[in-house]
Amino acid sequence: MGKSNSKLKPEVVEELTRKTYFTEKEVQQWYKGFIKDCPSGQLDAAGFQKIYKQFFPFGDPTKFATFVFNVFDENKDGRIEFSEFIQALSVTSRGTLDEKLRWAFKLYDLDNDGYITRNEMLDIVDAIYQMVGNTVELPEEENTPEKRVDRIFAMMDKNADGKLTLQEFQEGSKADPSIVQALSLYDGLV
């Protein structure tokens, strides 16, 4: 993909415009910024974590950033290329609610087996709590990752089998306004 070129080839721009919710001009602008920050044309896990640390200076986002990195890194080569970056950004910032929920499901399904187990969710929720640090005051019933996961599973795990399917996750998330709101945070920002 033209590693350190400051412009993408027209056919690449066209393809990314088809695969995302961005215009050709927006794709070019994002590429310019991506190459400025990642001259090699790729972003590794350490660089990704560094970006998260800028956004969450009062907590430790390392663990959460690693989980997000793994979802962005579609081809699992340990690096995020621009096409992976822009497609994930498109879903998280401008995707439909169902697209965002499928993306979030992939984030929580750490072993990619098609289910979110209690332990997988606990890993992610714990990482989120570490990331936000003491900057967020949580209600008593959610002031630990374990309590939050218990509440989520009580609401979403309809067949009580200890794991969530994509359908259970989507339906449960849509029924909880706070989850829908959290997924909409990026709307309109890009």
Rank of each mutant, 00 (worst) to 15 (best):
T17G: 08
D60F: 06
E11G: 14
N75R: 05
R94M: 14
V180M: 12
D109L: 06
Q49F: 11
K174Q: 09
S40V: 06
D126Q: 14
N112G: 01
F105L: 09
L183S: 08
K7W: 06
E26Y: 15
V91G: 12
F72C: 09
E74S: 13
E99F: 10
D126V: 09
R118W: 12
S173V: 01
A127W: 06
Q181M: 01
V136W: 10
V91N: 05
T66P: 09
I86T: 13
W30V: 01
F69L: 11
F22K: 14
K158T: 04
K100G: 12
R118N: 03
L89N: 09
V125E: 05
R148P: 00
F22C: 13
E24P: 14
F22G: 11
A160F: 04
N159M: 09
Y31F: 11
P39S: 09
G33R: 03
K25S: 13
G59C: 09
L16F: 08
D123L: 02
E14H: 11
R148H: 04
V27P: 05
I152V: 09
P57R: 02
K7M: 03
F48V: 15
G41L: 00
Y31L: 15
F58A: 03
S40M: 02
Q29V: 07
G33S: 08
T144S: 11
K9W: 10
D44S: 03
Q87D: 11
L43D: 15
A45G: 05
F34G: 04
E74K: 13
I80Y: 09
V91T: 05
D161I: 02
D60M: 00
Q54E: 06
G133Y: 07
I51G: 03
V91S: 03
Y108C: 05
L110W: 05
F67P: 09
E99W: 00
E99R: 09
D37V: 11
N134D: 05
I128P: 15
P10M: 12
K76Q: 01
N143C: 03
D111G: 10
D157E: 08
Q181D: 04
A65C: 09
V13M: 11
T17L: 02
F48A: 11
D98E: 10
F55W: 08
D113Q: 03
Q49H: 07
T117W: 03
F58S: 01
T165P: 02
E137H: 06
E14G: 14
N70S: 10
Q87Y: 06
A46C: 05
D150M: 09
V132F: 14
I35C: 13
F48G: 13
S4K: 05
K3I: 15
P177D: 10
W103E: 01
K163N: 10
K53D: 05
L8T: 02
R151Y: 13
P39Q: 00
I124A: 01
K163T: 01
N70I: 07
